[in-house]
Amino acid sequence: MPDDLDAARRRLARAQHDLLSALVEGTPPPPGFDPDRLAVQRDVLLAKRLRVVAKTAPELTGILGGRYRPLFLAYAAGRPMEHGYRADARDFARHLLRTAAVSGEPARRLTEWAAATEETTRPGPLRRLTTALTRSRTKGGDR
């Protein structure tokens, strides 16, 4: 039973990753999905990301104003989220600074904000420990 479940986890992991990768990285979609519906779901995810990052880090829209939307969409196009929204907001700010997409006063405020959020978005020791424990347990059986 645990072997069966482990095998089911691996099959499901492959199927879910293929779908999510198609949605957020633009890899070829797995067979059998309606392309129009994949496009709708892709737009829903992107709109949510745009909205939640703005809500999570209102400083960004405060600093960037009307440029927030186009700059974020350009940033997000090639960069799927690997962590949560807070990390995404911080990575977006770093990306803007690295690529010199903003300059002058907005760049100065963005630098300050990115430095202030650095500490709060880095995984703490408890998080790193539980992640390690969870990984080491994945070979064990389920009930």
Partner: peptide, 25 residues
């Protein structure tokens, strides 16, 4: 998805995605 069970990078959807209604899932 990704990471852990797969030799692939980790991805966050940031939103709720449907589970396939299969025996495995």
């Amino acid at each position: 998805s990704g990471g852990g069970l797969l030799p692939s990078h980790r991805l966050e959807a940031g939103h709720l995605l449907p589970v396939p209604r299969t025996r495995d899932a």
